[in-house]
């Protein structure tokens, strides 16, 4: 990484602080809204340990909503960063873990892990990782020819990989009588509701080093975007950087999938939005994606909790409803 100019440090800290504020507001909303009682007042009462606060409300806020908000933050950050890295490495603005099928591959791995009877961590996380790596290799093999790197070809292969993954998932679900798969469909849609602090801790321990590693390579991503020859002459070891970044990203994505299923299009919406506001410098975009992605998924999860009259819906429903139309819009725009 090149030494940072003072201007960059200033810009970075201003952007990070303002996005941190946005994230904190979203998290605050996240712990104050829910299916039982909503209200900012009760959260303040609970925060300040005031006498009126009810121990039941404390439990709901700190042991049910808070882990869920933290999970949404981590998952949103990981998926946004995943999208950013794929867009830079494949030099394709429409690349995203879910669209390329990496998430689908992780889901297959995770389901196989569940069927074998592994525990969530490390067993299911590892089979999910294996699944995502298999799909990643498939994509790399397909895109190693010159022509297929073209936008449409890559997306088309992603659509096919996704269709294949969906079929394998349905195959596995239909083949088994296992009661553990009863609510697998709900889990596949990206469900954040059944998490406790232990899970959040493990996931944070997995993801935070990945965030730092990707930030370390943020300048290399800038150079890569200028073209392979240019990057090489500027001293970037393209092969190792690409491999490290792709494997790290797949690892992050598979960890999130094994905890909360398929949350789609986050990696498309957030990086595009942030690039629009802050420009194309990855040294700024990496931390911005972590904070902004977290805030985005926390907000989507709040909608998923508040909108349904009866029960809740998976957060993945909301992210897909926002993300898919944006994808079509971006596709039309890049075609021109």
């Amino acid at each position: 990484m090149k030494p940072k100019t003072p201007l960059l440090v200033k810009r970075l800290s201003i952007i990070s602080l303002s996005l941190l504020l946005v994230l904190l507001i979203a998290m605050f909303l996240g712990i104050s809204m829910g299916s039982t009682t909503s209200g900012i007042k009760i959260v303040f009462q609970s925060l300040l340990k005031s006498r009126e606060s009810d121990p039941m409300l404390d439990t709901i806020i700190w042991q049910i909503r808070f882990p869920r908000v933290l999970l949404a933050t981590l998952v949103g950050a990981a998926l946004s960063l995943g999208g950013l890295v794929f867009q830079a490495l494949l030099r394709n603005p429409l690349a995203e873990p879910y669209i390329l099928g990496i998430s689908g591959g992780s889901a297959i791995g995770a389901i196989i892990g569940i069927l074998i009877g592994f525990s969530r961590f490390p067993g299911v996380s590892l089979t999910a990782f294996a699944g995502s790596i298999a799909i990643l290799l498939l994509i790399l093999v397909m895109s190693s020819g010159q022509t297929i790197l073209k936008k449409d070809a890559l997306l088309l292969s992603g659509v096919m990989v996704n269709a294949f993954c969906a079929a394998v998932i349905m195959f596995l679900v239909s083949m088994t009588q296992d009661s553990r798969l009863h609510n697998i469909i709900f889990w596949l849609m990206g469900d954040l509701s059944m998490v406790d602090m232990g899970h959040v801790g493990i996931l944070a321990a997995i993801l935070c080093p990945c965030f730092i590693l990707i930030f370390w390579f943020s300048n290399s991503m800038n150079l890569l975007l200028m073209g392979k020859e240019m990057a090489q002459t500027l001293g970037v070891n393209i092969k190792s950087v690409t491999v490290i970044l792709l494997v790290t990203t797949s690892f992050m994505v598979s960890a999130t999938v094994s905890y909360c299923g398929l949350v789609g299009f986050v990696g498309l919406v957030v990086p595009h939005l942030l690039r629009l506001v802050f420009g194309p410098d990855h040294r700024v975009l990496v931390p911005a994606c972590v904070l902004g992605g977290g805030a985005y998924l926390v907000s989507c999860d709040v909608l998923a909790r508040v909108l349904p009259k009866q029960g809740e819906m998976p957060a993945g429903v909301i992210t897909a409803m926002i993300g898919a139309p944006l994808f079509i819009f971006l596709l039309k725009k890049t075609r021109r």
């Binding site: 039941m56 049910i64 909503r65 609510n183 029960g311």
Partner: peptide
């Protein structure tokens, strides 16, 4: 009071009923 469907329980609603 309802606490979700039996395959998709709402933890928060259960806890709120103490």
């Amino acid at each position: 009071p309802k606490v979700g469907s039996y395959v998709q329980l709402n933890l928060e609603k259960i806890v709120a009923l103490k």
